[in-house]
Design a protein around this nucleic acid. Sequence first.
DNA 1: TAGATTGTTAATCGATTAACAATC
DNA 2: TAGATTGTTAATCGATTAACAATC
Lengths: 209, 209
Amino acid sequence: MLTKKKIPQSTVWRLSQYLNCLSLLSSEKCREISSHELAERVGVKSTQIRQDFHYFGGFGQPGCRYNVGQLIGELEAILGLDKPQNMIIVGAGNIGQALAHYDKFEPLGFRLKGIFDVNPRLFGLKIRGVGVRDVKELPRFVKDHHIRIGIITTPARVAQSVADLLVRIKIKGIWNFSPMNVTAPEGVSMVNENLSVGLMTLSHKIKGG
Amino acid sequence: MLTKKKIPQSTVWRLSQYLNCLSLLSSEKCREISSHELAERVGVKSTQIRQDFHYFGGFGQPGCRYNVGQLIGELEAILGLDKPQNMIIVGAGNIGQALAHYDKFEPLGFRLKGIFDVNPRLFGLKIRGVGVRDVKELPRFVKDHHIRIGIITTPARVAQSVADLLVRIKIKGIWNFSPMNVTAPEGVSMVNENLSVGLMTLSHKIKGG
DNA sequence: TAGATTGTTAATCGATTAACAATC
DNA sequence: TAGATTGTTAATCGATTAACAATC
């Protein structure tokens, strides 16, 4: 485990693809897999997989295929899925509600604890057992419930100020869905997920290239 | 315009960021901008911007700053936003409905024409004036309404078969939100948007690195 | 003209792929 | 042992950054 070699962003992205694929294989009672087989399934080169694993010291032994269960464990640990993480959503509009409904985060260990908004008409609304609360309660709530991740689904014009608030109350990571790039200081992780970018990328591809 | 030099994916991604920023500037009556100012705002190096533009032959003249309006026009053309494109959504669940409600696609020229599902209880439901229809009507609808883009928001297990159907009926691009990587043959553009990947990436970042 | 700025080539940096020794 | 497979280094490829000539 010589994690100190600066992992490319693209490697982290692929690790989550590998994990997806391996989880499926595991549910089909597959116990072992070679880098070649996994590569085939995920659509990358086998040497890419071995190199990706190599950043973490490698997870197998020469001559033997990888153990699926062990691999899943290693990848989960790397991606921080080995222990549960509490999340909140700020902004109970369409995107916020859809993410609250989404049931693929929970099995990965991400637990939604609260949803916040400024619109009183939404207070009390429950989505999968999680209530919408007044954003004024947010700082207190984050402290009391050990919230590590904040998801921003507010309009663009307030996104940065929400992020600033989340930073102040010591949230660890921010996942921003507002159509405005948001920044956070060193020490707080940020992922900007501008939905329009995906569509524009698709549009450009269609044009031919 | 020597478009034939193989544009990096990352460049296309940044072009959409530039466009975002420029649209905002334009609405603030900003008429000209240098690569340095734009770089500052978007958070990249100015030389990166000039290189990105260089792939398309460059949009300015040495000594003069870029014209904001012209730049917007050029970027829109590159990203295929210069003429409207019709879209449908397949899968009227949470994500599908949220995307149907989302109002940032329309100003970019993307027009949602229909939503499809297999659940009869959803038929007739209207979102922003667009109705949910039986997926059986899909092939006919796509032909009649010149649909170019299909958004998949179905459960994972049917995602590939929906994609195959969309390919058969000659859709040009597919934007897949199901948590399963979907493939399409040469000639049909694909963007896979696995939501869990963003969260896992964030989780990994939080762990420290 | 002098200062600012772009376009464009070259240098650097980083990520992917190839090759192969080590191991089972 | 022979065949398969990983770990790991080196080679290749591609993208970013630096440098500077050309231009206004």
